[in-house]
């Protein structure tokens, strides 16, 4: 009897080990999340009214559309900028590769509020970019508070995720593979397109998924830098809570945002398995 209990006891023990975390997550994450879900159908009155609004009214749909579009543009910008960097890092001698890694992750360690403000200074009407324009005799275009400025800043903030995803796969490509492709007559551009890219595909998908999902929920950067006319979902949720006290509507949007994120991750999981997302 006591013997047959042993496995149950050991599984009880491992449950005890994760218990503090479970209690914490339940109290401070699951319960509030459930509250948000409940609020979305109960505030100010019971019903699915908020969801119907979101699905039908132009403003909400446009915000959702802008959010997805911004996330897509940021993901692609990260890929275009990150690939050459990751490729150079993977090909660099160990010392240089380590130095580049430090530079890439350094921007990771800087608070992203700081990085966002830095972009406000750079792109502001009296910032260095504007000065450069007037130096050449042009009037500086309005850079700040546009989709351009928020896209630039988010690309900058999310770039390390992409670079690290790509670096992982590029580093694992046998150096003899590009060499053997070259010896077989493939010019360098062809080696990249037909040997390196296919082998790096898992890292590319990983990087795109990570950046896309993280970008969907961005709040501070688009609020501080973005155009008030092209808001992202998280910003609108904040606005509704803070300015209009419309908790129900805000909750419904939060649930939609969460659901969208889960759909993206679900698609990724179906195809590749979620355990591989973080490398």
């Amino acid at each position: 009897m006591s013997k047959s209990l042993a496995p149950a006891q050991s599984s009880l023990r491992s449950w005890l080990l994760v218990a503090p975390l479970l209690v914490f997550l339940t109290a401070f994450f699951l319960v509030p999340l459930a509250q948000v879900a409940v609020m979305s159908v109960s505030d100010p009155e019971w019903g699915l009214g908020h969801y119907v609004d979101i699905a039908t009214d132009g403003f909400h749909l446009r915000v959702l559309g802008d959010t997805f579009l911004t996330a897509l543009i940021v993901s692609l910008c990260c890929l275009l900028l990150g690939f050459p960097l990751a490729y150079a890092m993977a090909a660099a001698p160990p010392g240089l590769a380590a130095a580049m890694m430090v530079v890439v992750t350094m921007s990771f360690w800087t608070s992203f509020l700081v990085r966002t403000y830095a972009w406000m200074v750079l792109l502001g009407s009296r910032g260095p970019v504007a000065h450069l324009f007037s130096w050449f005799g042009f009037t500086a275009p309005e850079l700040l508070f546009t989709r351009f400025s928020s896209t630039v800043a988010m690309t900058h903030i999310l770039l390390p995720y992409m670079v690290l995803s790509l670096y992982g796969v590029l580093k694992r490509i046998e150096p003899s593979l590009p060499r053997s492709a070259a010896s077989l007559g493939a010019p360098p551009s062809f080696v990249i397109r037909h040997v390196v890219l296919p082998l790096a595909a898992p890292g590319i998908v990983n990087g795109l998924t990570l950046v896309f999902v993280l970008c969907l929920g961005f709040y501070v950067t688009p609020i501080l830098l973005g155009s008030p006319r092209e808001q992202m979902v998280a910003g609108v949720i904040g606005q509704q809570v803070e300015e209009f006290l419309a908790f129900g509507e805000a909750s419904a949007m939060a649930v939609v945002l969460l659901a969208s994120t889960l759909v993206v991750l679900g698609l990724y999981h179906r195809r590749f398995g979620l355990d591989r997302l973080w490398g």
Partner: peptide
Amino acid sequence: VPPHRRDIGIVFQNYALFPH
């Protein structure tokens, strides 16, 4: 002459076949 125009066949110790 760059390697891809040398017209030399090479076999590597680790085979270096394209896995895809």
